[in-house]
Design a protein around this nucleic acid. Structure first.
Length: 281
DNA sequence: CGGTACGCCTGAAGGC
DNA sequence: TGCCTTCAGGCGTACC
């Protein structure tokens, strides 16, 4: 389940393979995973997907990745639940199941590998734009601050008057971009705040603690290479180890690593939620 | 506005 | 062993 740390790890591991490299061929194997803005006829879709371009930058906001070409063409990739973006120096002749997009990558006229987008559950997708500005306007304008730089004042302002459960607020990408179900539970555990507490009841001090906890859990997860639960691997196919450090997520019924109390669990905002009823209030 | 529910989609896991 | 059900969930949308 890729959240901000997994997408950031992916961005970092893609960079050495893609920055300054040319896209010499594109194979779109399942049309439905791509959205073209503006719309493109079938003949022009490979060009919109960066064929003939050189990768200038890899950017990220929350859980979304942007691939920017030197001429301004821009792709936004969202991994959804099960998406993978992998660079293969020596790709197998037959792409794995659920391979939806393939880019052939070259440097100085020689093929260096293949970039592959795979997504069994198809909750993810790729969006193609004419310019980085069009991408940001269409996909990123409604997103809140990037959670890696979670700002306590902005969080406090966003939560003021809210009666929604704080966990639901953390999952709201328009408030803070990049936190998903895993790191919401982890950040609330670290900040010792109950997931059920209405957002508006957090004072400035609690918001500062929560913003700090969000930055810390995300930063530490990036340092661990992200979390590999089912599908996630980085651009080189490497697993992460962030899951070994989880205090709350996936530990329902197990004892709290802080006080020993069995961890509580419930569904909150349609999401499995785990917390310690002793440590968190 | 908020909250609740649902649909999308597949593979893993559990029950019988 | 094999079939069936349940669950995992990001996000857009519908509806109260």
């Amino acid at each position: 389940m890729p959240e901000l740390p997994e997408v950031e790890t992916l961005r970092r591991t893609l960079e050495p393979h893609l920055l300054g490299a040319a896209v010499i061929a594109v194979s779109l194997r399942r049309r439905g995973v791509c959205t073209f803005d503006p719309p493109r006829s079938a003949a022009h879709r490979p060009d919109a997907l960066l064929r003939g371009g050189v990768v200038l930058a890899l950017d990220r906001r929350g859980k979304q990745l942007a691939i920017i070409a030197d001429d301004g063409r821009a792709l936004c990739v969202h991994l959804g639940m099960s998406g993978q973006l992998r660079f293969e120096p020596d790709p197998p002749p037959r792409p794995p199941p659920h391979t939806h997009l393939l880019w052939t990558i070259a440097r100085e006229g020689r093929i260096t590998g293949r970039l592959r987008f795979t997504d069994p559950r198809r909750f993810g997708g790729v969006w193609a734009f004419d310019s980085p500005e069009a991408l940001r306007r269409s996909r990123w304008e409604t997103l809140g601050h990037d959670a890696l730089a979670a700002d306590e004042a902005a969080l406090f302002a966003g939560l003021t008057g809210s009666r929604r459960a704080i966990k639901a607020c953390l999952l709201d990408q328009t408030l803070l971009a990049g936190v998903g179900n895993i790191y919401a539970d982890e950040a609330l555990f670290r900040a010792r705040i109950s997931p059920h507490r209405p957002g508006g009841t957090l004072d400035a001090g609690a918001c500062a603690a929560l913003a700090r906890a969000v930055r810390e859990v995300l930063g530490e997860a990036i340092a661990a290479g992200g979390a590999t639960l089912r599908d996630y691997v980085d651009a080189d196919g490497q697993s992460g180890s962030s899951q070994d450090r989880f205090q709350a997520y996936g530990r329902a019924g197990q004892s709290c690593r802080c006080c020993g109390t069995p961890l509580s669990s419930a569904r909150l905002s349609q999401r499995a939620t785990v917390w310690c009823s002793t440590c968190q209030s």
